[in-house]
Nucleic acid binder design. Structure first.
Lengths: 207, 207
DNA sequence: ATAATTGTTTGCAGTGAGTGCAAGTTTGTC
DNA sequence: GACAAACTTGCACTCACTGCAAACAATTAT
């Protein structure tokens, strides 16, 4: 295990790539719920059992999440300039990922695919939740808020929510680019979504 | 189908209740991932096949979501006073559900159970997404925002996010009641989570 | 080179979720 | 009581996913 770019390592990367490629292609072709692991494995020329050595769930292969994104995000969160506000950091993180996804030229196709399939959305949100936990931990440390404050967690999760809503809305209003929607969402989160908010706590019930 | 409270209807309610009770009990006992549908069905004294006539997924039975909640929420959204701000309406909706859940005396146990199990969280979020779509549709209509605005969707989804974050934080800081956390979250969403937000759009990249 | 070691792939057997179908049973209607 | 509609059930099936042990390939030591 001294050699970094050994044959073994390269072959694994190849196999992984073959699997994710086949998975995405077939998912786009036949719809994500009509692809079987068997087909994906066959297209990548490995056994079904090997597929599961690489991915714990079928959806993982289709999502093909790049672990570097979370790494980069955490790194940026930790090393952000002291005078950069929390949501601003999240904005940069989101746009970094966005830029990387767009370089694939598959942002919107993959986005639609994900939003249209419950099971994909599932896996994405699951990993998002995990990501958000880690980001929240990093942000909490960085912010020095009182323990038990909801603010760090809310900022991280709300940013994630803004992404999801932006992608969703982009489906029905494709004329607005995702970046625009995203920026509008972040602005609202930053300055407030509802200046007139004010429930009357005294009242016991209603109609 | 003229009789509302016929034998048939009552039996169905009974079976449904037996299934959800058994499902929740067993999930709390053995952990949600170690309960099989077979066990639940057996405990409720019906066949496995019948279980799937009532719930599309195992998790649905454990969550035992009350369809009335969504109905009530949509109703309130549609009939809210004209001068009630959007997030305020969401606040009332959330608190209505909360009050109902608490009357079971199972809010926090069920909440913890859900937050601790990926597969439960999955189903909850999936149904939440669907709920949010419907609520967003209702709110969009009510608000008269320009088409393509992200605000209605963001308000609804961010409110949902606040609930999730509140439950999650309550796990690690049980001394703060969920209502407190929730109110803090809504306040932040209303007035803004980050007054200093301001990414420099001109800049191309960053280290 | 060859042998020993370690990591990877694969087949196989098994559990459990979820579905479609057809037959049987129960409930409501006339 | 006869008839139709709704509900339950068993059966056979597909598919996701796991553990285990044998086969295989890459790496390292000799």
């Amino acid at each position: 295990m001294q050699i970094e770019g050994g044959l073994r390592e390269r072959k694994k990367q190849q196999t992984r790539a073959a699997l994710t490629d086949a998975a995405l292609r077939l998912a786009l072709e036949k719809g994500p719920d009509h692809v079987t692991v068997e087909e994906i494995a066959e297209a990548a020329d490995v056994s079904v059992r090997t597929f599961f050595n690489y991915f714990p769930h079928k959806e993982h292969a289709i999502l093909a999440r790049n672990p570097e994104h979370l790494e980069a995000a955490l790194e940026r969160m930790r090393t952000a300039p002291a005078d950069e506000s929390p949501l601003t950091t999240m904005w940069f993180i989101v746009h970094d990922v966005l830029r990387d996804l767009e370089s694939d030229g598959q942002l919107s196709r993959r986005g639609e695919l994900i939003m249209s399939s419950p099971s994909l959305l599932y896996q994405l949100m699951l990993s998002s939740i995990d990501d958000e936990r880690q980001l929240t931990a990093a942000l909490t440390e960085r912010m020095g808020e009182p323990a038990g404050s909801i603010r760090p967690g809310l900022i991280v999760s709300a940013a994630g929510t803004a992404c999801r809503v932006a992608v969703e809305l982009h489906k029905t209003a494709p004329d607005r680019p995702i970046r625009d929607l995203l920026d509008e969402g972040f602005q609202l989160l930053a300055r407030g979504t509802d200046p007139d908010f004010g429930p009357v706590h005294q009242q016991k019930g209603h109609s």
